[in-house]
Nucleic acid binder design. Structure first.
Length: 794
RNA sequence: GCCGAAGUGGCGGAACUGGCAGACGCGCCGGACUCAAAAUCCGGUUCCCUCCGGGGAGUGUGGGUUCGAUUCCCACCUUCGGCACCA
């Protein structure tokens, strides 16, 4: 027998050429009006082309999606599996700056390189649907959607304290400030008051806390909890406090209206308008310094600081005059930026009161009942909350209110490489949207795009000057660009209808495919991209543009592939790519290795050692299949491998489909191949070999296709996924475990049809069991049919 | 501080619904083939004791429920993640 050597490269190139020539992985949309429940939209988060190669984290992510895609396709489903590029934004622009080229050149070169690697890995991707955020055919519709949000009041401009990254020289969103630092570059962010565009994501705060998933959909509980933590909902009341001498009201938000009688002073945040309008020089001086500090630093301060403003407010519930302080422990961006201070029942207020010698009045006793609270005395605190708010409402001094931690999404960027915001400013007409027919507002090519603390586009006079669409007088363009996360908040809709030049997408097509059946991506995007996308879809649904309210029916987070204990990423520089490994061992081996490393949702340390075992397995599979092709009979007769093969089909199918688990199916096929190699001439060896090849195909499609051909067949990629015959999953005999007092004493091969009393009888007679029964009474017998007998003795 | 997840051989991990702990793979040990090596194949590999029949212990720690617990409950330890001067 002379089995040829397994050489992956020519085999992989051969089949990749076939798939490319035949457009094997192109999935056209079904004819309009098609309804079926056997379609699947498989999506993994799209990559940033900020470098010219992938790392092993990408390989894990996309290979998982690939296995699922093959599995669903062969199970008879119509599967959409696209790919695109998150090409705008800081990472790409910074990469271009580093290498001194234009961002467009950098990303387009990187896209070519990464696309080549993806094809070399043999992934099932419908390249005819490829989109990239930086192409005018795409960002035209990003701009169009922005205008729709503007019409609905969901995009707006305001001056507000925003996070400024001094290194990247742009505003960044709250969601991408981590521990007070820029998520991209690690620089400490500063708070700056700036006029910016925002998306009103807070309008959907409550809805985003709920998950309106379709039937069969699921999100990990952990993911939902993290999003809910981020949104942060507190129920309470808004209460008006009057400054008599100024004839103004200052609202506060509190979760503890029951403690209103215990308020002994009042505090506004340094950034509060009251300070600017009514503060004396000392107050404003304090506020200026305190307000410039980051929240993290304020929280870390050893002692409470503040200044009395000289003003007083009236407590609406008892008419007491409370001194108004400005203090930096009150934050402008939560609640109303002002608080009623109840030192007896709030730690921070207590600390402040101690420092400044302010009175402390207890209004709730140990039984959680109100005291010293006028007509509310004796009420349990929970009841008092409602009663006091109701009383305030009657007086016109308060109302129930809900406060969120979530802030509106600040989306203007003072950088060049992004989607232009389609707005024109006119001295007479104000903020004027660019008419739809004039879209896209093209991003001009400029030589000097370096960040300089203000939008680089602003210095391009020719581009900036434009007639006002409303009155025709000269206006000026918005020079900021959009946050990259705007681009990626709707890309999954564009894939469905990527070449549409009349609309961002066709509603019928989108309603057919969406929500995404399974979305795979890193958990780090939970409070950013994933929240933004859900907001977009809910808003689009309210605008009648899509027929669903959640973009992603199921969500799966792959674990980090780490090196040296930290996540592989370009910023950290600890990156290993697949290219060299693919050259040396082949794409199939790399695909198997990354999935065989362990549960896909767990973090893992990358090591090349694992690839050896996988390569051994592939060589063994190769050899055994050749032996089978040569020696096994071509007609099938049942043998011991038949049952094993059916068991493997059941195991692999269930793991992939229901459990979304990828490493145990590989083990199962290894077991089958190991047994097959013991007897490659068995009467059912051919069936076992075909089964092994068929089951490993989603993981290792090239070698599987080649071996399938050598077994005399064609086109495994469209061959129906095997189905386990239940008749073979039942065993005629089983191994009966015999326990005495819970300890295993014997294992007996017994007929599966034996009734329980006979199983007990066999157990009692076992040579290995009898010594353990000596001088003992059998008090109880437990029989688990098909498994074990436990004799309880004493 | 609040909320959540996870702890199993030398290593990655398996055991899905309370029923054989350690599948599969790595590594290691021994053997075959070879002048030799690589590759490949075969056998062994949780720990302790052993008269080689077997016996005992064992899934972070301590308790509990149960005939039976890696799995369920309670407490604790460790690690990781989210939120945190959020009123």
């Amino acid at each position: 027998m002379n089995t040829p050597k397994y050489e992956p490269k020519p085999i992989e190139e051969k089949w990749q050429r076939v798939w490319e020539d035949e457009r094997t992985f192109h999935t056209p949309n079904p004819p309009p009006g098609t309804t079926d429940d056997t379609h699947w939209y498989q999506l993994e988060m799209l990559p940033y082309p900020s470098g010219d190669s992938m790392h092993m984290g990408h390989v894990l992510n996309y290979t998982m999606g690939d296995v699922l895609t093959h599995f669903r396709r062969r199970s008879g489903w119509r599967v959409l599996r696209p790919m695109g590029w998150d090409a705008f934004g800081l990472p790409a622009e910074n990469a271009a700056i580093r290498e001194g080229s234009h961002p467009r050149e950098t990303v387009e070169r990187n896209i070519v390189a990464i696309r080549g690697q993806m094809k070399r890995l043999g992934w099932v991707i419908d390249w005819e649907r490829e989109v990239s955020a930086h192409q005018p055919t795409y960002y035209r519709w990003t701009q169009w959607l922005f205008l729709k949000f503007l019409e609905r009041g969901l995009a707006y401009r305001k001056e507000a304290p925003v996070n400024w990254c001094p290194n990247d020289q742009t505003v960044i969103a709250n969601e991408y400030v981590v521990d007070g630092r820029c998520e991209r570059c690690g620089a400490e962010v500063e708070l700056r008051n700036m006029t910016q565009w925002f998306f009103k994501i807070t309008a959907y705060a409550d809805e985003l806390r709920e998950y309106e998933l379709p039937e069969g959909g699921w999100w990990p509980e952990r993911s939902k909890t993290i999003q809910r933590n981020w949104i942060g909902r507190s129920e309470g009341a808004e209460i008006l406090f009057r400054v008599e001498e100024l004839d103004i009201d200052i609202p506060v938000f509190t979760t503890r209206p029951d403690t209103l009688f215990g308020a002994t002073f009042f505090v506004v945040a340094p950034e509060h308008a009251f300070v600017e309008q009514h503060g004396n020089e000392e107050v404003r001086e304090y506020a200026k310094h305190a307000g410039a500090r980051r929240t993290e630093d304020r929280a870390a301060a050893e002692a409470k600081t503040g200044v009395f403003t000289g003003h007083h407010v009236i407590n609406p519930v008892n008419g007491e005059r409370l001194p108004v302080y400005v203090a930096d422990y009150v934050l402008m961006d939560y609640g109303t930026g002002a608080i009623m201070a109840v030192p007896a029942h709030d730690e921070r207020d207590h600390e402040f009161a101690e420092t400044f010698g302010l009175p402390i009045v207890e209004v709730i006793n140990e039984d959680d009942v109100l005291v010293s609270s006028g007509q509310f005395d004796g009420l349990p605190a929970e009841e008092a909350k409602r009663a006091i708010v109701e009383w305030l409402r009657e007086q016109g001094r308060g109302a129930p209110a809900v406060s969120y931690r979530l802030r509106d999404w600040s989306m203007s960027r003072q950088r060049y490489w992004g989607c232009p915001i389609p707005i024109i400013y006119c001295d007479d007409c104000g903020i004027v949207p660019v008419p739809e027919d004039d879209l896209p507002v093209l991003l001009p090519d400029i030589d000097d795009y370096l960040p300089k603390g203000k939008a680089p586009l602003a210095s391009n006079e020719e581009w900036m000057r434009v007639p006002c669409p409303s009155c025709g007088k000269e206006g000026r363009r918005e020079a900021d660009t959009m946050d990259t996360f705007v681009d990626s908040s709707w890309y999954f809709l564009r894939y469905v209808d990527p070449h549409n030049d009349q609309a961002p997408f066709d509603r019928a097509a989108v309603d057919y495919w969406l929500p995404v059946s399974l979305y795979i991506g890193g958990i780090d995007h939970l409070t950013g991209h994933l929240l933004y996308s859900r907001f977009f879809v809910k808003a689009l649904n309210d605008m009648g543009m899509v027929g669903f309210r959640e973009p992603f029916a199921r969500l799966y987070h792959q674990g980090w592939v780490q090196m040296g204990g930290t996540k592989m990423s370009k910023t950290k520089g600890n990156v290993t790519g697949p290219a060299a490994l693919v050259d040396e061992y082949g794409a199939d081996a790399v695909r198997l290795t990354i999935l065989f490393m362990g549960p896909a949702d767990q973090d893992k340390e990358w090591t090349e050692e694992g690839i050896e075992g996988v390569v051994r397995f592939l060589r063994r599979l190769w050899r055994v299949v050749h032996e089978v092709a040569e020696r096994a009979p071509s007609d099938w007769r049942e043998g011991p491998l038949t049952q094993r093969a059916h068991e493997t089909i059941a195991k692999v199918s269930d793991d992939v489909e229901r459990r979304i688990q990828f490493h145990t199916p590989i083990s199962a096929v290894m077991v089958l191949v190991n047994e097959l190699s013991d007897d490659p001439a068995a009467p059912d060896a051919r069936f076992a070999a075909e089964t092994a090849v068929s089951l490993i195909q989603p993981y290792a499609p090239h070698i599987a296709e080649e071996l399938w051909q050598r077994l005399g067949h064609e086109r495994l990629w469209e061959h129906p996924w095997p189905v386990a015959d239940p008749a073979y999953l039942k065993r005629d005999t089983f191994e009966l475990v015999v326990q005495v007092n819970g300890k295993v004493r014997d294992r007996l091969q017994v007929d599966a049809t034996l009734p329980e009393p006979e199983l007990v009888e066999l157990a009692l007679q076992s040579e290995k069991v009898r010594p353990h029964l000596d001088g003992m009474q059998v008090q109880k017998t437990i029989v688990v049919p098909g498994r074990l007998v436990n004799l309880v003795v004493g």
